[in-house]
Simulated assay, not measured.
Amino acid sequence: MPMSGNASNTRYIVRAATDETALAHFLDSIQSDPAIRVVDTIGPAAGPPHTVVVETDPATAERLRQRTLNQLMIEPDRPLSLF
């Protein structure tokens, strides 16, 4: 069951570092984790996503980083600015 909005949750960008199948495995592995909510997937309409935006707490994000070391890049989703 997806978690509801929480003030301590942050959005993170997740993408494959080298192996594109790592992101698909990641998506499968978090489906039953109530501490992680998929906010958006980014990629071509006819193919698998290349980037995923998730919402979770910082401790869970760090756990994911450790678990997927060298397979995925997980970083905070920060607003883009031209200046």
Score class of each variant (00 low, 15 high):
Met1Glu: 09
Pro2Gly: 02
Ser4Gln: 11
Gly5Arg: 10
Gly5Glu: 06
Asn6Arg: 13
Asn6Ser: 15
Asn6Ile: 09
Ala7Phe: 05
Ala7Leu: 03
Ser8Ile: 06
Asn9Met: 05
Arg11Met: 08
Arg11Cys: 11
Tyr12Asn: 08
Tyr12Met: 04
Tyr12Asp: 00
Ile13Met: 15
Val14Met: 03
Ala16Trp: 03
Ala16Ser: 15
Ala16Lys: 09
Ala17Phe: 08
Ala17Lys: 06
Ala17Cys: 02
Ala17Asp: 03
Thr18Met: 13
Asp19Val: 09
Asp19Tyr: 04
Glu20Lys: 01
Ala22Pro: 05
Ala22Ile: 07
Ala22Asn: 06
His25Lys: 11
His25Tyr: 13
Leu27Tyr: 08
Asp28Lys: 10
Ile30Leu: 09
Ile30Tyr: 06
Gln31Ala: 14
Ser32Asn: 12
Asp33Met: 08
Asp33His: 02
Asp33Gln: 09
Ile36Glu: 06
Ile36Ser: 05
Val39Tyr: 00
Thr41Tyr: 08
Ile42Asp: 07
Gly43Met: 04
Gly43Cys: 01
Gly43Tyr: 04
Ala45Val: 03
Ala46Arg: 13
Gly47Phe: 06
Pro48Met: 10
Val52Phe: 06
Val52His: 06
Val54Asp: 00
Glu55Gln: 11
Glu55Ile: 02
Thr56Gln: 01
Asp57Leu: 12
Pro58Tyr: 03
Pro58Glu: 03
Ala59His: 14
Ala59Lys: 13
Ala59Tyr: 12
Glu62Phe: 11
Gln66Pro: 01
Gln66Phe: 10
Arg67Thr: 02
Leu69Ser: 11
Leu69Tyr: 12
Asn70Lys: 07
Asn70Tyr: 04
Gln71Pro: 00
Leu72Tyr: 05
Leu72Gln: 05
Glu75Val: 11
Glu75Ala: 14
Arg78Gly: 00
Pro79Ser: 12
Pro79Leu: 11
Pro79Val: 08
Leu80Pro: 02
Leu80Gln: 09
Ser81Gln: 06
Ser81Tyr: 02
Leu82Phe: 15
Phe83Gln: 14
Phe83Tyr: 14
Phe83Cys: 14
